[in-house]
Nucleic acid binder design. Sequence first.
DNA 1: CGCCCTTTTGACCCTTTTCAAGTAACGTGG
DNA 2: CCACGTTACTTGAAAAGGGTCAAAAGGGCG
Lengths: 240, 240
Amino acid sequence: MNPHTIKVACSNCNLRELCMPLGLTDAQIQRIDEVVATRRKIKRGGTLFRNGEAFTSLYAIRTGFFKTCVATEDGRDQVTGFQMAGEVIGLDGIVNDRHTCDAIALEDAEVCVMPFDRIEELSREVTALQSHVHKIMSREIVREHGVMLLLGSMRAEERLAAFLLNLVQRLHARGFSQSELVLRMTREEIGSYLGLKLETVSRTFSKFVEDGIVEVRQRHVRILSTDALKRIVNNQQACH
Amino acid sequence: MNPHTIKVACSNCNLRELCMPLGLTDAQIQRIDEVVATRRKIKRGGTLFRNGEAFTSLYAIRTGFFKTCVATEDGRDQVTGFQMAGEVIGLDGIVNDRHTCDAIALEDAEVCVMPFDRIEELSREVTALQSHVHKIMSREIVREHGVMLLLGSMRAEERLAAFLLNLVQRLHARGFSQSELVLRMTREEIGSYLGLKLETVSRTFSKFVEDGIVEVRQRHVRILSTDALKRIVNNQQACH
DNA sequence: CGCCCTTTTGACCCTTTTCAAGTAACGTGG
DNA sequence: CCACGTTACTTGAAAAGGGTCAAAAGGGCG
């Protein structure tokens, strides 16, 4: 065996608490290692799966950053989410055994391939895994409710503020800064996610900079006032 | 036993093919009857569950029509979906053991109460049920992708056209007309779902009427040209 | 070093919202 | 069954928020 191929199992993965259930016995953790069949590396710009492809597996992101997007025949396109380490993608494929969106890596990435039939088999035996799978799917449904609220009832500034707060909060949960982040996506991709044109995203960033709420240098963003962003999302008066 | 209380089980429910898996053995169908604990009637305007309430069960709609909506503290409100007979609601509650949206009956309704712990227990034994639960959740995720596309990239006419086509298609699958429908919700609720103000919904209906695409009398809608609606959704030229 | 992609900014236009007024339908109670 | 109050719906006019088009500047990668 190649000495460089370190056996990386869920049982000793530092992301386990993000993508796997807690409070398992050692025996159960051993079994859950069986869920991950292989790993797969995807280069920046590469696709993990595409609309129409056969669904076989869910993917847990080990490193890197993805976007998922849906498209229509007439060329409309919508980013449905941005996913980072510890998050699971591919749930859309379960219902029809085909993926209905594209998953594209926004930076070099590595995922754990978890064949879905194996997940189903094992979750019949390990109750904690069964519950975990249900919670992951439910969490995605609730997340999308939030996006619908954003798209349906917020103005441009509110959308961008909510977006930044959400990103930085998820990054912070992974040990990164609460106030600084590097965007992995273009203004156009942000706009597609937020239901705005890229020019509007750019202008809104500029407005935030003018108002002293954030500093922006390219894709590097430093949040100067989290509270101001929260006030914008909550549609409150600035009470400097 | 009350002679008026007819035992209504999944095994002889004509909606079974909508809310339960197909191709079961008789023995499996018997077991699945155990999933439904009770039934519950909700009057028009009543709530099936509310944001913050403890999650215990999923609900299969037997009769009636529901809306689900999320809200923020600052009074923002978003209808996340309209549900009809044979559809399952409550999936949002799984992740945190609390509901995160309200489910409100838009007409007198009856639901089958399916305690979730019982569903999980039984789906460990009946593979078809397990698979079915996964597909229902995945279907909801895919549906919401479609709503995100609508909210993020369509104009008012396109949204309303897509909405009408979706409604009539689901009603047709339940044996109703392909071209006539009765809206169970107000213009305001349609607007909330579509990310539009009620005035815009009203104006867009009026425009469709002017163009001879639909007839509207209050909540009664007759679709005169399904093709025209499809062309609007697909952003195509009218080719009279 | 140079090309290309991304981003910014301006000016103008279009869609939708806002505000307002009036009308129609519905349900409730007498 | 009718009158009344309430809610839902329609329509107009003005305003605002984003979109579109265009041009130019800034970075990054080969």
